[in-house]
Structure formats: structure tokens, C-alpha cells
């Protein structure tokens, strides 16, 4: 059974109108986005800054109320789940800035055990603490961390505490919103491996939001590429990395620097030219048309629909042959 599904999800933020008394306007961030996620799978969401990845992650958990479409949790519409607050134990999130995600005034035991007060109200305080210590140990932090404060932690340790808080209620899904982009490379590997290990042990599904293609490749089963709030390509991991189909995906891949400096120097740069279109005033055609090397008048006028271009692969481009 599908764990998480979104149907034509649209998310926008209200922004004040231009005049003193003019009505608020909607700033649309995510458009018409449909996805499905099965238990135990990892969906990697990639895209440049500002493309709506993080907004999508929060809307999937209904931390932001979507303006359009639905999110289904195990087949139930999230908007109508009674007492969703307590069901949140099943769906958790970890954040980009691991230190900002922890209340500086609370001890780690308190931070990690606090969700249990909501999710399992009958648990005694002592048992909740024991569960928190257990969760800390699961993420590789010894029990003597329990009475420490967040300012005593390194970034990697803080992110583990964030993960411990997410798993303490035994979730089925964790949204990982750029969980390693604020960490050192060596620590990134630890956190990624920890997530994969927990996924295996607990049967977790992950939505892994990142702009780091190498990290997404390591952890994901499927990859979804977003551009300006729309999905432009969706594919199983190995097919995607073997041959990205959408010109935007190809541009993202090309933008990854070569680790060998001599080869990097000789590499032909294919940096994107052109302007990112305004979110408030989106162009009628393809979201990538203004920057796409292959764009024609067709692209600028008609938006390509997301369509199946190969078994299991979807892309939104006029020029991909099935």
C-alpha cells in the first residue's frame, strides 16, 4: 500500500498586497505536483535553490496547508484526518540547520522526549526519558549526552539529536530537508549512513530533499527533479544517473564540479545562461525555456505536460522521444 501520495498538490504563500489596503496575493511555490511513496523507499528530490523543494516537504506533512490538491497518508486525506496532531508520530522531519532545530533552553533528553508527551500521553516521565536515551543511543550518542544543552554539540551531533527526536515516536516516514548541506563532508557521510541504517532497521520511508546530486544518488531509490515548483523529471535512481533526459536535469548534472582539478580545468563549461523567470509572473511555456539551450518558440508558449517517456520514467519536455 502506498504510504504517502500527493495529488495535484499546489502550495503558495500569502504575501501582502502592494497597496496599504489591497488584498493579500498568493505567491505560488509548488504547482500541480503528484507523487507516490511506498513504505521503506527513498525519494530524492533535487533542484536549485528556490525551486520549492523545502516547501513541498513541509506541505507533504501539512506543516504548511496546501492551497490546492490533496496529500494522502496511507490512503487517508490529511486534511480530514481527525486529531492529526497525535498521528504526527508516524511522519517526522529533520532540518537543514541542525542547531537551529533544537531549542537552546532545553536539554537533549527533554528535546528528544517532548514529542512522546503528545504521541504517547500515558507514558510516565521516567519511561519517556528512557525512550529518549534509547533514541540517542540509536543515533550513536551515549547516554551522558542526555543532560547536555544544544550549544555544547557539533553540527553533526546536533543533526543526530534531530534524527533521534524524529525516530523516538517510531515513524514510518521522515522528510529530510537538506539534512547534510550544513555539515562537513566527513560528517555528511556519517549522517547519510546513519539514515540508511535506520531506514533498514525501522522500515522507514524517506523523502530526501537536497541539491547535492552525489548524496541523492547514494541514498535514493527514485529521483524527482523540480524546477520552479514543477516536476520536470522523475525516474528510478540508476536510470536517471545513467542518462538524465530533461535538459534541466542534464544542466544540473553538468554543474557538478569535477573532483580532479586538471580535468575540471579542461571541462567545457555549460553554465546556464538566461534569467530565472519571476515566480510572481510565471511564463506561459516551459519553466526552463528561458534558460534551456534547446528551447524553441513552442517551449516558450506551451507548457509541456509531465508524460511517461520510458518505462518508469517521466519527463516534462517537448523534445524527448519515448
Amino acid at each position: 500500500m502506498t504510504l504517502l501520495e500527493s495529488r495535484n498538490l499546489g502550495v503558495g504563500y500569502r504575501i501582502p498586497g502592494t497597496g496599504l489596503f489591497s488584498a493579500a496575493r498568493m505567491l505560488p511555490i509548488v504547482h500541480d505536483l503528484s507523487l507516490t511513496l511506498d513504505p521503506g523507499r527513498t525519494l530524492g528530490v533535487v533542484g536549485e535553490s528556490g525551486c520549492g523543494k523545502s516547501t513541498l516537504g513541509r506541505a507533504l506533512l501539512r506543516l504548511i496547508v496546501p492551497s490546492d490538491g490533496q496529500v494522502l497518508w496511507q490512503g487517508e486525506d490529511m486534511a480530514t484526518i481527525p486529531d492529526l496532531r497525535r498521528r504526527r508520530a508516524e511522519m517526522q522531519i529533520i532540518f537543514q540547520d541542525p542547531v537551529a532545530a533544537l531549542d537552546p533552553r532545553m536539554t537533549l533528553a527533554k528535546i528528544v522526549s517532548r514529542p512522546l508527551a503528545t504521541f504517547e500521553p500515558n507514558l510516565s516521565r521516567k519511561d519517556a526519558r528512557a525512550r529518549a536515551v534509547q533514541a540517542l543511543e540509536q543515533v550513536g550518542l551515549s547516554a551522558d549526552f542526555a543532560d547536555r544543552f544544544p550549544h555544547e554539540l557539533s553540527g553533526g551531533q546536533a543533526q543526530r539529536v534531530g534524527i533521534a527526536r524524529a525516530i523516538v515516536g517510531r515513524p514510518k516516514l521522515i522528510i529530510c530537508d537538506e539534512p547534510v548541506s550544513a555539515l562537513d563532508v566527513s560528517i555528511q557521510a556519517q549522517v547519510i549512513n546513519l539514515l540508511m541504517e535506520l531506514q533498514e532497521k525501522m522500515g522507514l520511508a524517506l523523502v530526501f530533499i537536497s541539491h547535492n546530486l552525489a548524496v541523492v544518488r547514494h541514498i535514493s531509490h527514485d529521483v524527482m527533479v523540480m524546477c520552479l515548483g514543477r516536476v520536470v523529471e522523475q525516474a528510478p535512481r540508476s536510470e536517471f544517473y545513467a542518462r538524465p533526459l530533461h535538459p534541466y536535469s542534464q544542466a544540473l548534472m553538468d554543474a557538478v564540479p569535477e573532483p580532479d582539478p586538471r580535468r575540471e580545468k579542461g571541462r567545457v563549461g555549460t553554465a546556464l545562461a538566461g534569467e530565472l523567470p519571476s515566480v510572481l509572473n510565471p511564463p506561459p511555456g516551459c519553466v526552463f525555456a528561458s534558460r534551456c539551450p534547446k528551447a524553441t518558440d513552442l517551449c516558450r508558449q506551451t507548457r509541456p505536460e509531465l508524460r511517461t517517456v520510458a518505462p518508469g520514467r517521466q519527463a516534462a519536455c517537448h523534445f524527448i522521444e519515448a
Binding site: R88, A100, A101, L102, D103, R114, P115, T118, F119, G169
Partner: peptide
């Protein structure tokens, strides 16, 4: 972000104000 984490942890607005904002 810890306020968002608190929401994800199922805390109500009143709990967030009293337990996170005020302290």
C-alpha cells in the same frame, strides 16, 4: 526551525508559546 520541529512533534500553538517562545 525548532518551532517547526515542535509542530511536527504535534505540539499545539499554546504549548509552543508557553514551552518554547516564552522561555
Amino acid at each position: 526551525e525548532f518551532i517547526e520541529a515542535a509542530r511536527a512533534g504535534g505540539m499545539t500553538g499554546r504549548q509552543i508559546v508557553l514551552e518554547h517562545i516564552v522561555p
